[in-house]
């Protein structure tokens, strides 16, 4: 009896994440997917056809017949959308690389710090989350603007005469993204680096391997899972980032988040914006799925 209830309990525990994903990921995904095949209309909701239980089977099939790929074809007809995707991917890639470059030494330093102060260091990395993300981005406006703290400081110590124009440029967007997403890079890196067996480095040193070479042949390859996890955790949300480019970037910063906003709110075209969102999802999910697959195969071998 207890065995049976245990098995039932185990299944229930496994079911919870699946139920969660179905309710909060699959269902919304299919709603968006279905809107992306509709046509825009001045109505409530603002697209056609609308499925309703009262239509019966015949109505259901009629509605299915009205769905089309028109919105996806539309996205290929204007270079704007492709440019926005490419520009988003580029900005996300550059800022993720910068985050890795800054995050790695931080995580390395933390993992090699005395055990007694590691919790404090970890706390310091997490601490910024205690203040609202939006407020921290606004704070960067005050720092980067022409009469802001950074320019005042640089002028006071005599490095520059005229203020640097950083706010409302892509540089400000990179600073904002690197700052906001740094913890997402540092934490997975730290957890892999911390678990690493230090005696491997000692052994390499004993056998005459210079420290730099030991780093590239031992430490870095062993930390790769952390690098990949951090990279994905930063890259994926950055591609669709809306707030940081909106507040810190200039008006000429073209990103897919803004394009989606314009489709939804200026053109009031829910179907086209749904199509933009679906394509964005595919652009992100397909390479990751291929990558995961390759990794799984490598692990098996």
């Amino acid at each position: 009896m207890t065995k049976l209830s245990n098995a039932l309990f185990n299944r229930l525990v496994i079911a919870i994440p699946y139920i969660w994903l179905i309710i909060f990921f699959m269902v919304p995904f299919f709603i968006v997917l279905r809107i992306s095949f509709s046509q825009t209309a001045i109505a409530m909701p603002p697209y056609l056809p609308v499925f309703s239980l009262s239509d019966g089977w015949q109505g259901f099939w009629d509605n299915i017949g009205q769905l089309s790929f028109d919105n996806y074809i539309w996205l290929t007809e204007d270079a704007l959308y492709i440019n926005a995707y490419i520009s988003s991917l580029t900005i996300a890639f550059i800022s993720t690389c910068l985050t890795l470059l800054i995050g790695y030494p931080i995580a390395y330093g933390m993992a090699r710090a005395p055990t007694s102060i590691r919790p404090t260091l970890l706390m310091l990395v997490i601490l910024p989350f205690w203040t609202s993300f939006l407020i921290r981005v606004y704070a960067w406006i005050a720092i980067l603007k022409p009469e802001g703290f950074l320019n005042q400081f640089l002028q006071a110590i005599g490095i520059i005469d005229d203020p640097l124009i950083i706010l409302n440029t892509n540089i400000a967007v990179y600073i904002g993204i690197v700052y906001s997403y740094l913890p997402f890079m540092v934490l997975p890196l730290y957890s892999t680096l911390e678990k690493m067996d230090e005696s491997l480095i000692e052994a390499a040193g004993d056998l005459g391997c210079p420290p730099l070479k030991a780093f590239w042949t031992i430490t870095f390859p062993l930390s790769l899972p952390g690098v990949i996890a951090g990279f994905l955790l930063v890259f994926i949300p950055t591609v669709g980032e809306f707030v940081i480019p909106d507040l810190l970037g200039g008006s000429s910063t073209l990103m897919i988040g803004k394009t989606l906003w314009t489709e939804f709110n200026a053109n009031r075209d829910w179907p086209v914006s749904a199509a933009v969102a679906i394509i964005l999802l595919l652009v992100l999910v397909i390479p990751i799925a291929i990558f995961q697959n390759a990794q799984a195969k490598a692990a098996q071998q």
Partner: peptide, 10 residues
């Protein structure tokens, strides 16, 4: 669309 091209140059 015209506005996007004015604002972003795209």
């Amino acid at each position: 669309r015209e506005w996007t091209s004015i604002v972003t140059g795209q």
